[in-house]
Amino acid sequence: MSTPTSIPMQGSHFSRILTISTHTFTQLVRMKVFYFLAIFAVIAIASNFFELPQHEGPEAVGANVLRSIKSWSLGAMTLFSVVLSIVATALLLPKDVEDRTLYTILAKPVPRFDYLAGKLLGVLLLVFVSLALMDGLMTAVLHIRTGMVVAEQTEMAQAMGWPQDAIASLRADTLAHGPDASLQGAVFAVFLRASIMASLALLISTFSTSTLFTTIVSFLIYFIGHFQADARDVWLQAGQAGEGVFARLASLLLALVLPDFQLFNVIDAVIQGEALPLLALGKLTLVGVYYALFFTFASWFIFADKEF
């Protein structure tokens, strides 16, 4: 009587995850997702032309157009990254099942966790590369335009006889709206939010029966996640506004189950010229990693002994 022999696994978890993620990345790139960069380029350049007439002296020249570039660009990045992370992740498992790739992979000595983590990393790599390209374009446009605005303001201020210290102060004010570390931090916050969405979509897709279901539910959670903080506040300040027991429990349930996406709205403050401290970004990263890890392990928990 022969005893079943287990096939030894080759390579480390890391190398397997890397191989799957590289393959996923290539697979997604072949879907021509990078075409949207052309649309982004149009948006970034078009945002330059929304310079409305100004009402004051040199300090107001071009102030709006720099914010307009950041607002349009970061807005487009948020939309693209969230859509990309949800749709790409929602596609992964059903497509692998449809192509029968999943059976081939799972028939090999590849732990299911490695498969899921590799798939997720592939999507995240795609989102990261996309954001990096968009960030590069936005930074270049913003850099050029900031230089133009500073030159225009300086010329006008000099013509009006402003003292040197006033011109220097004006220059510093304008440069705060140009490309800086906070802006890069904001792009990273966009990436973190997209990462949470990708890992959440992965979890949903492990028990979902269709891509459409995963996509719709993920988008719903994305929007409702922006109210999570309100629900949490209702629970934490319970009783102050005379809420009923049911309302309090419902708010607690929402607060516990949904991710808090409002935290990542620091992007708005950066667009408005605020500096994003490294510590705040670090804490946001912690939140993002916490969610991504939990959702990935939860996905594996469901997927581990799923029959196909």
């Binding site: 914010r67 607002s71 349009w72 970061l74 807005g75 948020t78 939309l79 969230v82 939010r193 994305y222 929007f223 922006h226 109210f227 996406f261 409002q262 990542f264 709205n265 992007i267 708005d268 667009i271 408005q272």
Partner: peptide, 8 residues
Amino acid sequence: ALGGLRTL
């Protein structure tokens, strides 16, 4: 706006 794009 609620989706994090208030400034847009």
